[in-house]
Design a binder for these strands. Structure first.
Lengths: 190, 190, 190, 190
DNA sequence: AATGAATGAGCTTTCATTCAT
DNA sequence: GATGAATGAAAGCTCATTCAT
């Protein structure tokens, strides 16, 4: 197996184990076995378990961002672009429940807090979502609230309904997805 | 120290350690030290670590429910009652950030999933929130959506903004709280 | 409850718990609960767990010796007396499986070794069995072997069959008991 | 140290500690230290302490069986074969007192009971001893008694005298061994 | 570069014993 | 005398990480 494939296998194994069993339930030996490598090999690609977790997160985040960006209707009004992002995100999570569960584990941990802090206050380039909200604010299309509050209104319910679907508390069909996304827009719009 | 005080001290210690460091940042030895008892003493009050966690959750949940119920405006329209609950909940969380963080850890764990499943599908008496949503649905005051979705719209953003406040990503003043709660209502209302 | 009754209750509780679950499975707290006293109370009657075990053994041993001595046919030939002892012993063990199991636990432990050493080499008065063997040796009724070997031939099989009966590997009826005892005599007799 | 040697060292350490101090005088840390490995290492070779004990027993049992089978006089009458087995067994135990004491601990424990039950009622191939007794029964060379009773008569005294020798209550010289074995045969023979 | 056996600190839990009431 | 809550050492076991091969 060539080098980058091995790295990917390790990340995939870590992601699935963490998604299913939490950080606790993903010992390095189990990650190694699932990835088809020796335990020591992981340490050639990642400095430590923490590093592996952060890199796994970066990997998943990149895939999610790619999914959101695909067919992004740049030319359309903010409302349409918002609905696009929300729908794509829900669709992605429902198709990739492992990645969803991994992200939940990640955010609900010291890693996630550090990551959000960096995103909000660091000097990294703003992502597509932040840009959309800023444009919407300028156009006075949405309520004049701080970015974190807008994110909360837009994504808080979305994440909750995805979780409930994955846990089989509800069944999210197209109709319900549309209604949920519309309700989130109601929360945001002026 | 009398018996119930010791139990309370242990619960408080567990709650704070779990809030700050998660379940695996809260070894029983640390809980014991923080509570000012010997490690073995915990097992006079709780069968196991799992039991301690569940009892800690029950303790916090009872306190939250008490806070919501206090001065609950039974006679007023559903919208006012909804605003009451949301405001009280935010107020409680901001005053008790440890309890908030504990609840987050709890819900994001096998305990939390089991607890929600029981709440949704078990035969326990419906709580004040479920009752309010059902009344609101009957009056056609809110969108006709499944209970879990309504909860997501009402509490998803609320929890997010509380977390952001506690992590000092934003500062939730009275004005901002009011606006956030109003936005949640916008998401729900027909 | 008067003092000696309490002591007896503790001994009975210890005996039964040790018989059923071994020394491991008889924590002092369980002994106390079974005896209907507080944990600390045991230490008024016995210095330590070891002491309790030794006293429990002495208690059971005395009861067994009493059973053997009852109706002991002093006037009859050694063979008849031997058969009496063997039969009484088997009868006692089958009626009191708890005591049998306790004795097995006891002998198979450091306590038991010390106790036998004391019995063989100490200056305590010889018991009925030792006296019987010595008389039989004088009369040249049995093989000229050291006392421990005679005990082994006489009681080794007996203990084994009692254990097998209690564990339900065999059913010891009167016929089988008689045959077994007779076989033991065959081993001893000249 | 190569892999199988390490496993053997652990078994040897466990066997000796259990022989000398019983199951609860053999904590895993002590076994590890005596074997010259780290505590965790044991768990690479054995699933649990129970597993280690069972494997240690299997190891010792295999060695004993090998000793009995060596030079087994297949062609000779049952009596000679019986005397062979008894003598070899005594010889083996006296040469390997640790293994003898380990086996005593093992049989006097839940493990041993389960093991005997399996041997008596399971469908495993009969061992050399059971086969010998069955042949002897067919030839009407020995008393018509259930297998467990025959075992008791044959091995009960044998085990007792070995124990007494190891504990230095008696000294088993060749003469005494021969006499004891002969006495056991007297118990069995018609 | 890859392996996987070995490590040992750290986890949860038990229990003989003490002592303030 | 009796109580039983409290103690804390010690148990079995796990797992991130290292390193000789």
């Amino acid at each position: 197996m060539a080098k980058p494939e091995k790295r990917d296998e390790i990340i995939r194994a870590a992601m699935e184990l963490i998604a299913e069993h939490g950080f606790h339930g993903a010992p390095m030996a189990a990650v190694a076995e699932k990835a088809g490598v020796a335990a020591g090999t992981i340490y050639r690609y990642f400095e430590s378990k923490d590093d592996l977790i952060r890199e796994t997160h970066a990997h998943v985040e990149a895939r999610i961002l790619a999914a959101l960006t695909q067919n992004y209707p740049v030319e359309q009004p903010v409302r349409e672009r918002f609905l696009h992002i929300e729908s794509k995100l829900i669709a992605y999570f429902l198709e990739s429940p492992m990645e969803f569960r991994f992200m939940e584990q990640f955010f609900n941990s010291p890693f996630g807090v550090a990551h959000r802090r960096e995103k909000l206050f660091g000097n990294k380039e703003k992502n597509i979502i932040f840009k959309l909200f800023e444009e919407a604010l300028e156009q006075r299309a949405i309520k004049d609230l701080p970015l974190p509050v807008l994110c909360a209104l837009a994504f808080g319910p979305l994440v909750d309904v995805c979780r409930d679907h994955i846990l089989e508390f509800i069944i999210l069909d197209d109709m319900l997805i549309e209604q949920t996304v519309a309700a989130c827009w109601d929360a945001l719009k002026r």
